[in-house]
């Protein structure tokens, strides 16, 4: 289990978040994880919808914000995926986006279970 977590989540980032909690903010880590897990799926739906509609500026903006919120939790693979999608959106190259979007959906499931395991 630990092995999987390491590839999905950057444990250094997770450690830094836990350190914040140790500084007089009990429950903060759980709160952050919960925020992330509730906030992200709707944003990902939004990205998918923009991609389906061929709205490239929409894809770019949604992928950009997802990239940075995944960065907060150290979800490195997701960050890379959204980075690629953002670039494709900027270059108006819609062809590869759907496959990357479905990859990101699968990766999110992994991130979710990894986060719940670290809780």
């Amino acid at each position: 289990m630990a092995d999987t977590n390491e590839t999905v989540l950057d444990m250094e980032v997770i450690g830094a978040l836990r350190a914040l909690e140790a500084d007089g903010a009990p429950g903060l880590f759980a709160e952050i994880v919960e925020l992330f897990l509730t906030d992200t799926p709707p944003r990902m739906k939004g990205l998918e919808a923009a991609s389906d509609a061929g709205d490239m500026p929409g894809v770019e903006a949604a992928a950009h914000s997802l990239k940075s919120s995944c960065g907060n939790l150290g979800a490195t693979v997701l960050v890379d995926l959204f980075k690629q999608i953002e670039m494709l959106g900027r270059e108006h190259a819609p062809e590869e986006i759907p496959s990357l979007v479905s990859k990101s959906n699968e990766e999110f499931v992994r991130v979710q279970s990894a986060l719940l395991n670290t809780k």
Partner: peptide
């Protein structure tokens, strides 16, 4: 920030 996670983390970093 429109990203709630980022807000919470940054806030705690500064509050502490």
């Amino acid at each position: 920030d429109d990203d709630p996670t980022a807000r919470v983390i940054l806030k705690q970093q500064l509050v502490k």
